[in-house]
């Protein structure tokens, strides 16, 4: 009986591989509901859900930026720098015209990402190492712009970005949802998207059959920088501030969301839908902590533990280790031990 249930449940997962990611959103939303209800506020009130979705708006695109490089089998640490740089440029340039600020920020960061991607692709470099350099360069630029360029955040932007739409949404969260949908469709239904996934899973074979791997790597790093900077622009416009050093918090959100989203660290597996689910589930967690005014010790410990759990869950040798534990004599029956002996 148990095996039949197992087969059926496995069949559901096979038919709908995104089920674990959707389950993560449901679980986190349930947690959010319980926490807010315990606090005495109405969980389904528009303000509470909208606040949670604002985290999705601020950090969702950053998660997508990191996710697309990971699907390609790379890792872009400099997204953290382009996140800060994008926000900084937008706030400084866009104090009078926010659209111009956003366009300049995304254009500058994309150019940086393309250059970085070109070097990584051309010389087949370890992206983790090179992008640490990229991170420091962008962070340095951020500090220099902050000191040398006058300009403060436009006070009219935050209310516009967080304006209530259909009770729980805002222009910012809907915009981010739209970008996830476009990315998801592009990856699933276009030949470019399928080639992209193939390159992530089997880089050498892709080169061997003549796919333009270098071009894809270059463009992916450009896109990653563009998305991270756009995320930074939204963050800075929402808070009307510019970050000189964002710390590792956005990175923690993005990595956790990407791993919950089912992206494989070795590349070739994952989709924007999963990343969006990961980002949404984390947004509800962050929202729950915000509503209950959790102290930093609790939130930091929970965020760290959650990332640790998903990192262990996605570790390639976890199954082998669990198997070796199950095969240990203390977990076997006497009969099995006798057979083994």
């Amino acid at each position: 009986m148990g095996s039949v249930v197992g087969k059926n449940s496995l069949g559901v997962v096979r038919r709908w591989p995104e089920l674990p990611q959707v389950a993560a959103v449901v679980v986190m939303f349930a947690f959010f509901w319980i926490m807010t209800a315990a606090k005495g506020t109405t969980p389904f009130s528009g303000a509470n859900v909208a606040n949670s979705l604002n985290y999705f708006g601020e950090y969702g695109l950053f998660a997508l930026a990191l996710g697309i490089t990971m699907i390609l089998g790379e890792f872009d640490i400099s997204t953290l720098g382009t996140f800060a740089l994008g926000g900084m440029i937008a706030v400084k340039v866009g104090s009078t015209n926010p659209w111009l600020g956003a366009v300049v920020a995304v254009a500058c960061c994309s150019a940086f990402g393309l250059g970085q991607g070109y070097i990584i692709a051309k010389f087949r470099m370890n992206s983790m190492t090179l992008t640490v350099g990229g991170y420091l360069i962008t962070l340095g630029l951020c500090g220099a712009i902050n000191k040398n360029v006058q300009g403060n955040g436009n006070a009219n932007i935050p209310p516009f970005l967080q304006k209530e739409i259909l009770t729980i949404f805002s222009p910012m969260s809907l915009f981010v949802f739209a970008i996830f949908i476009v990315a998801g469709v592009a990856l699933k239904y276009t030949s470019m998207g399928r080639k992209f996934l193939a390159m992530g899973g089997a880089r050498k074979s892709s080169r061997a059959i003549g796919l333009p791997v270098n071009r894809y790597v270059t463009v992916t790093f450009g896109l990653s920088a563009a998305l991270a900077s756009l995320s930074g622009v939204l963050y800075s416009y929402t808070t009307a501030t510019s970050l000189v050093d964002p710390g590792l918090t956005p990175f923690l959100f993005a990595v956790t969301a990407v791993l919950i989203g089912g992206v494989s660290l070795s590349g070739g597996r994952g989709a924007p839908f999963g990343i969006a689910c990961g980002a949404l589930s984390l947004s509800f967690l962050y929202g729950a902590f915000q509503t209950t005014a959790a102290t930093p010790d609790i939130s930091d410990t929970v965020y760290g533990l959650l990332l640790l759990i998903v990192a262990i869950w996605s570790a390639p040798s976890l199954k082998e280790w669990l198997g070796s534990i199950a095969a240990h004599p203390i977990f076997r029956s006497d009969k099995e031990n006798k057979v083994a002996a």
Binding site: D297, I298, T301
Partner: peptide, 27 residues
């Protein structure tokens, strides 16, 4: 142990460990 035995990603583990240490120290 997590990196060597389970093959977990060293960068991600270090970020998680950083937040855990910070949380425990704050507590």
């Amino acid at each position: 142990w997590l990196v060597g035995r389970l093959g977990a990603n060293v960068i991600i583990i270090s970020v998680a460990a950083g937040f855990l240490q910070q949380g425990v120290a704050e507590y």
